[in-house]
């Protein structure tokens, strides 16, 4: 059942632009996990995990899944390092198009 129904097709296209456009796949250097990454600037990073990528991440597995575990909210340092590496190698372009 739909909610917050957009009233125009352009809105649906905006949703795609902001959430899906220009994501680049980056694989972890230490495990089988991979994510999709976008960098609008040197300091901005978006990291989109998938259910599968998440299940491969050794760091997240170690942290467990107990409720109320605040460390669950922290990024995986190995994946962050892998992303930095990919950026240095020029695999992840830096810069936004038109706010996305």
């Amino acid at each position: 059942m739909a909610s917050f129904v957009p009233s125009s097709a352009e809105t649906v296209e905006d949703q795609r632009l902001y959430t899906e456009e220009r994501l680049v796949e980056v694989a972890c250097l230490d495990c089988l996990a991979s994510v999709r990454v976008k960098k609008n600037s040197e300091h901005q990073t978006s990291v989109q995990w998938s259910t599968e990528g998440r299940s491969h991440c050794q760091e997240f597995q170690r942290r467990g899944t107990g409720p109320g575990r605040r460390d669950l909210h922290k990024p995986c340092p190995r994946m962050m390092a892998s992303i930095d590496d990919a950026v240095r190698a020029g695999d992840v372009p830096i810069g936004a198009y038109d706010g996305y």
Binding site: M1, S3, F4, T19, N40, S41, E42, H43, Q44, T45, S46, V47, Q48, W49, S50, T51, R54, P75
Partner: peptide, 22 residues
């Protein structure tokens, strides 16, 4: 706001974002 059967993976998949505040 979605029936449980209609929840799409991207609604719950992990997403991380750092804003550039410079």
């Amino acid at each position: 706001y979605t029936d449980v059967a209609d929840i799409k993976p991207e609604m719950t998949d992990r997403f991380e974002f750092e804003v550039d505040t410079t």
